[in-house]
Design a protein around this nucleic acid. Structure first.
Lengths: 149, 149
DNA sequence: TTTAAATATTACAACATTAAGATAATCGAT
DNA sequence: ATCGATTATCTTAATGTTGTAATATTTAAA
């Protein structure tokens, strides 16, 4: 720990702080979403379909960074709640679309503004300028981390 | 989405970027640790015990943000690999210490520098100055997010 | 002494991944 | 044009990691 270069120690510290920060925000994000009886992945599906319209299951998975197996599981749960439905694609019979039901649309329209407001409060530890800077830096960091994929 | 305040939109964007950045780094962190046949939580236990010495299981849990049930599971796994051992506390018979075995110590001493070097590379998307700024901002953000607990 | 709090384990449920498979589309060589 | 191989999409089953709730034991406190 002590014979590491300054550069390495700096990177290590940043990674620890990044992880803790993410966990803290994620925990509050989860609690906010739980008020509406959903877990974050479920909310993310509704949110994605609301803003992008019906999508092939594989596209939903790419967007949420979930594997195909997990998407099947999520969709089964959301269909049981009648918030989302599967719809066969007429052009390509391998494809199944995920689509909001009317109930799902109503639900996300109710939830979204309230949850967004809560997130605004959670992130209010940084001023507008600081948030802009943080966004730029994190984007840069993420891009580089993804290169090594 | 469109009738949100600028402030809210800014916060939302930051949260999306933060999450993506964290996921990208976490994914590479995981791959780096996997080279040594461990998962991140296992590595974290070894790392913690190496730098802090033997600790009560409950303390390990607090440090890794894992519940007591999860720690029991982790310890069972690490004991099977003979990297860590349980040791009863003589003063308080409710307490059980987690302690590195000699093999565990050797293992972490080998792994740690290599993994740290990999992390340095993963985070090298930001310059030293940028890393300092990011650390300050994320710490501030995390602190505020934790207040609402 | 009874009560409450702290510690660890157990049993179970939730959410994720991986690997294997079923079916459908596509593409290349004949 | 068609056959065969490859690729894409989704599902299923097995498994791994985590959390939650209930329990047992021990300690501390009233």
């Amino acid at each position: 720990m002590d014979n590491l270069s300054d550069e390495t120690k700096r990177a290590l510290k940043l990674w620890v702080v990044l992880a803790k920060c993410f966990n803290a925000v994620a925990e509050r994000d989860k609690r906010s979403i739980a008020r509406f009886g959903l877990i974050p992945s479920e909310f993310a599906v509704l949110d994605t379909l609301y803003h992008k319209g019906p999508l092939p299951l594989s596209e939903v998975g790419k967007h949420l960074l979930l594997t195909s197996g997990s998407i099947t599981y999520m969709m089964d749960k959301l269909e049981k709640q009648e918030l989302v439905e599967r719809k066969a694609c007429s052009e390509d019979r391998r494809v199944i679309y995920a689509r909001l039901t009317d109930a799902g649309r109503e639900r996300i329209e109710t939830i979204f503004p309230e949850h967004a407001e809560t997130l605004r409060e959670i992130l209010s530890g940084l001023s507008a300028e600081e948030q802009e800077i943080a966004t730029v830096l994190l984007r840069k960091l993420g891009r580089r981390a993804n290169e090594g994929t």
